[in-house]
Amino acid sequence: MIEVFFQYDFLRYSLFTGVLIGILAPLTGVFIVVRRLSLLADALSHITLTGIAFSLLLGRYINFFAVLNPVYMGMIFAATGSLLIERLRHTYRFYRELAIPIILSSGIGIGVVFISLADGFTTDLFSYLFGSIAAISSTDFTVVLVLTTVVVAIFGLFYKELFFLSFDEEQAVISGIPRRSLHFLFILITAVVIGISMQIVGILLVSALMTLPVAAAMRLAASFKQMFFYSVVIGEVSVLAGIFAAFHLDVAPGGMIVVVNVLILLIVLAATSEKILNRKGG
């Protein structure tokens, strides 16, 4: 059942990539959730679609883009989109959440125009939306491996600053922590992680892999460190179980991963429901 993943290169690379995004997405997700940016992940994933559509469109006319994985263009769009969101959050200082729907709908709108110009929906596009276990080449995997190492290293290096900013932004700024640069770095990382993860889970479900494991971990963790541990374990279990199930049942992996994730979340909620009652009681 599992051997088949090692018989074919494309399956093996997808599986390895799955292992990496099982770490990356929940890791980033912890900070996204505690900083109340869950919707940001959604907006950026939709902008990623715009980039992918743009790359597919260019691929019809320029040979270079026909062979390039469109995900890279997606990442560039997501990174640009994240900067625009920051800009808009500043412009609409008193209605900050407005930045998200503006960018999200512009992303989808422009994306759909590009898709139509590139002659409508293809199977390719379906796999970008819902994920695929056949999308990863060995070059792609190398890129994912390098990016994962860089992202994990950055989180390690700036763990204490990001933690402080998430818990108490005002006090962190008073202590001299460079809020703006770190926030900027964090959003760029989020754009990259979305680009990597969407290859397996798909654009529409990538934010689920960043938030569902964290939602479950939050019920279990006593400390911030434990939150990372539980999130990654839950993320990893969902990705692996989801990929195997998707292959054998021949369904899109994004769907299976999210289904497993939701099941874990329900189990955790049921197991900790007594705690909820206790807390409410005092």
């Binding site: 204490k160 600053e161 933690f163 108490d168 962190a172 202590s175 939050m218 400390s223 911030f224 460190k225």
Partner: peptide, 18 residues
């Protein structure tokens, strides 16, 4: 609801200095 322990919160006080 923020999952942080007393130790982790007090540690933040050193972050700027470190």
């Amino acid at each position: 609801g923020f999952p942080a322990t007393v130790f982790e919160v007090v540690a933040m006080g050193l972050y700027g200095k470190i």
